[in-house]
Amino acid sequence: MSEVIERIEQTREALMAALASRDWDAVGELDLECRVCVEDVLAEASSNEAAVRGSLEQLLGVYRQLIEVASGERQSIVDEMSQIRQAENAAKVYHLFS
């Protein structure tokens, strides 16, 4: 396996670990590293096309998972904020009648 493909595999595995632990700071840093890796992989793509394609497809799968999890987390925060607003409004109404 070429050095570039090995780097992208290591970065992909680290990204999966950060996603599993919901370490969003690490996800952000690894995302930047993935961008650099992809640029390097594309430069090598002509000499090892099949391996490059497989590596990038696996990385794409991780990004799909990342988007799904991040969207779920965002929706959880929206739901929680909605519940907090409802509780605040209920408290205001309670204080009006007490």
Rank of each mutant, 00 (worst) to 15 (best):
E68S: 14
D23I: 02
E6D: 11
V4L: 06
I5Y: 12
Q83I: 02
I5W: 09
S46G: 05
F97K: 13
L60E: 04
M81Q: 10
I8A: 09
V62S: 03
A45F: 07
G61T: 06
M81L: 13
V93N: 10
A26F: 01
V41L: 15
A45T: 06
K92R: 15
M16Y: 12
V52F: 01
V62A: 05
I84K: 08
T11Y: 02
V36L: 06
K92E: 13
I84M: 09
R22T: 06
N48A: 07
E73Y: 02
E33H: 05
V27E: 00
A18S: 09
R7Q: 14
G72S: 01
G28Y: 02
D79A: 07
R35A: 05
I8D: 10
M81P: 00
I8K: 12
R35C: 04
V27Y: 00
N48S: 08
S47G: 12
M1I: 06
I77Q: 09
A17S: 09
A51P: 05
Y63P: 01
I67D: 12
F97I: 12
H95D: 14
F97T: 08
A18E: 02
A91K: 10
L32K: 11
R22D: 05
V69D: 01
V69P: 03
R74G: 00
A43Y: 11
R35L: 07
E9F: 07
Q83L: 09
A91V: 07
S55C: 13
E39R: 15
E33W: 01
A45H: 10
A70N: 15
W24I: 06
Q86I: 02
Q58L: 08
Q58R: 15
A14P: 03
W24S: 03
L30E: 00
E80M: 06
V27T: 02
C34M: 15
G54M: 02
Y94C: 04
E49S: 13
I77M: 10
L32Q: 09
L96H: 13
R35E: 07
L66R: 14
E68Y: 10
A90K: 15
A18P: 07
L19A: 03
D25I: 01
C37D: 12
A18I: 04
E33C: 02
L96W: 09
V62W: 00
E88F: 08
